[in-house]
Simulated scan of single mutants.
Amino acid sequence: MLKITTLLFTLLISSALYAQTVKLTTLNWPPYTEKSLKDLGFTSLIVTKAFEQAGYQVDIKIFPWKRAVKQGTTAGSQFSGVFPEYTDGCKAHQGLESNLIGRGPLAFIEKSGANIQWNSLSDLSQLKIGTVLGYANTPEFDKMAAEKKLKVKAAKDDLINLKKVLKGRINLAVIDENVFRYLQAQHPEFKSLKVNSKLLSEGIGLHICFRNDPKGKTLLKAFNQGLEKINIQEITDNYLKALLKN
């Protein structure tokens, strides 16, 4: 009788844990999210800790960005959301935007001796600028790029763009400053590149974009409550300090 009771208790606990597991999608975007990094990157760690505060376990799967968005926002998917997403991106997918899980300062990367000066984006109209396919930048930048007022060429990833800057194929590359610092630490050849003196954006807000359905609404509420119980900046600073030191 004791064995049966123990088995039933174990099954009940397992079922409860399974019921409290949320599945999310993301991309390889170190140091924010990355399958080879500890805790899958510092943003994944923030998401996990916030959900833990709300009583959920998190199952994070990594895909190419477009697939991550589709899996995380399409009705009928096993996943309930995608991160890290910008406000405009979440609106475009008609999703439910969480409170901030961090910010991504957007920078222009140039060769160390370039010292490109600009006050408005129109000052860059004659330069070749690299972006990443499928990424949102700032509304003004993306609007000007769509209207061909900027000479923008999209690449598969940030690494390709940095190599293009290094070889002089493009003048500037749009990249998150934290990502650049990480890649610069990983690739010694990028030591001859630097952040332009003027940021494209001081910090674009990052969020989880939950699917807009009843489950998504429940998860959104629980996650936001969990976020209030953790220190996002402390988690971010400690993680990056340890990562870039190694």
Rank of each mutant, 00 (worst) to 15 (best):
L124F: 04
L124G: 00
Q126K: 13
L127P: 08
L127W: 01
K128A: 12
K128Y: 12
G130N: 03
G130V: 02
T131I: 11
V132G: 00
V132A: 02
L133H: 15
Y135F: 11
Y135L: 08
N137V: 04
N137L: 05
T138F: 03
T138A: 05
T138W: 02
T138N: 03
K143L: 12
K143I: 04
A145K: 09
A146G: 13
A146D: 15
E147P: 05
L150W: 00
L150I: 04
K153M: 14
A155F: 13
A155S: 15
A155D: 13
N161C: 08
L162Q: 02
L162A: 03
K163N: 12
K164Y: 14
V165M: 04
L166I: 09
N171V: 02
L172H: 00
A173F: 02
V174G: 02
I175R: 01
I175G: 01
E177D: 14
N178Q: 14
V179Y: 06
Y182M: 06
Y182G: 05
Y182D: 04
Q184D: 07
Q184I: 10
P188L: 15
E189Y: 06
F190A: 11
K191P: 11
K191S: 14
S192M: 09
S192R: 11
L193N: 00
K194M: 09
V195T: 06
N196C: 01
N196E: 00
S197C: 07
L199F: 08
L200Q: 00
S201P: 09
S201D: 12
E202A: 14
E202Y: 13
E202P: 10
G203R: 04
I204T: 13
L206Y: 08
L206N: 07
H207I: 03
H207Q: 07
H207K: 08
I208M: 05
I208E: 01
I208K: 04
I208P: 01
R211F: 07
R211H: 07
R211D: 06
R211K: 13
N212H: 13
D213P: 08
D213W: 06
P214I: 08
K215M: 09
K215C: 06
G216M: 02
T218I: 14
L219T: 04
K221C: 07
F223G: 03
N224G: 07
G226I: 04
